[in-house]
């Protein structure tokens, strides 16, 4: 017995000493690490919006920043992701007040495209093509007649994904340029995107809206950890598009698994799906529970809100 106490106390003392040592190191390195992170972020933002007189204000962490010159908003910088060939391509895009792309930056970190092919999206000549383009022009030349982007030879998937990330991000965030700021619930900017028009009629507060040709409703489903909000635009019995609450908007599913559903890639699986076929949509592996929550939210919202309006 005495021996056991001795043994355990040795482990205990080692652990205590280790904990003290680590907290000391942590305390001393944390400010340096954070300073570096904010420095890199600021450098990246400045690369996307090169102007020495501006300062940036974070709207959504790692996703959206407003650019101020003095008191006035002169543009935004956003970061939007799209699945490439083998990883998520996340360009940082600067946009001026006229809605034109200033510059884009695709950081190499976290990117795992094929070296020599998809990796070429990080090269200067590819990114420079975006400067000065407006929404309708951000397409690959082969994909749209107004497109002004030359894809990378033999890496169409990666160049298409990078282009789509810029285009869809611009579409999603351009409302921040006009009429100042949109304040309110997490879904406000997404509501405008899903309705297609800016003035929507609110039928039921915070639940149901009517746009020109479609309805948009908000519904929640019980996920693995938290409630997952889904915004659905619907025309008759067909889902046009959905938006799933993302972690920045307060969704709290398991990071890296459940949170994966809040991706454009997964959301697009619901585009133009008949309401009765929602169950047929493929779930994401590793996020089955959260996917089920999304599907349930879509169906229950439909039954509750749309069923009565017929």
């Amino acid at each position: 017995m005495k021996n056991k106490i001795r043994e355990v106390s040795v482990l205990f003392i080692v652990a205590i000493v280790s904990a003290f040592l680590l907290s000391f190191v942590y305390k001393n390195t944390k400010p340096v690490i954070e300073e570096y992170a904010s420095k890199t972020l600021n450098e990246n933002l400045l690369k996307a919006f090169p102007d020495s007189q501006v300062h940036f204000e974070t709207v959504k962490n790692d996703t959206l920043w407003k650019v101020y010159k003095g008191e006035a908003i002169v543009g935004i910088v956003f970061r939007n992701g799209r699945r490439g060939y083998s990883s998520l391509i996340r360009p940082i895009v600067g946009v001026d007040s006229a809605g034109r792309v200033v510059k884009i930056l695709i950081p190499k970190e976290g990117l795992a495209e094929t070296p020599g092919l998809g990796m070429k999206v990080t090269e200067g000549w590819f990114q420079e093509q975006f400067s000065g383009l407006t929404l309708g022009e951000i397409w690959l030349r082969g994909d749209n007649e107004n497109g002004k982007i030359d894809g990378i030879t033999a890496a169409t998937i990666s160049s298409r994904a990078a282009t789509a990330a810029v285009r869809e991000g611009l579409e999603k965030f351009k409302c921040y340029l006009q009429g100042g700021v949109i304040e309110g619930e997490w879904y406000v900017d997404d509501l405008i995107q899903l309705s297609g028009v800016e003035d929507v009629e609110e039928l039921i507060e915070d639940r149901l809206w009517k746009a020109k040709d479609r309805f948009v409703y908000l519904s929640y489903g019980e996920g693995f950890i938290s409630q997952v909000g889904v915004l659905v635009s619907i025309w008759k019995d067909t889902v046009l598009a959905i938006h799933i609450q993302c972690p920045e908007e307060g969704m709290e599913e398991t990071p890296g698994y459940g949170t994966m559903v809040a991706s454009i890639e997964f959301e697009s699986r619901f585009d133009n799906v008949y309401i009765g076929d929602i169950d047929e949509v493929d779930a994401l592996s590793g996020a089955t529970m959260t996917c089920e929550a999304v599907k349930k939210a879509i169906k229950s919202g439909y039954e509750e809100l749309m069923g009565g309006s017929e």
């Binding site: 040795v10 482990l11 080692v14 652990a15 280790s18 040592l21 680590l22 190191v25 942590y26 390195t29 340096v32 690490i33 570096y36 890199t40």
Partner: peptide, 22 residues
């Protein structure tokens, strides 16, 4: 005990590298 000792030094290296050679 070995693991605690080793992981302490690894964590020290990790933080130090993050701070000074990011």
């Amino acid at each position: 005990i070995f693991i605690v000792i080793i992981s302490t030094f690894v964590t020290i290296v990790d933080y130090t590298m993050q701070a000074y050679v990011p």
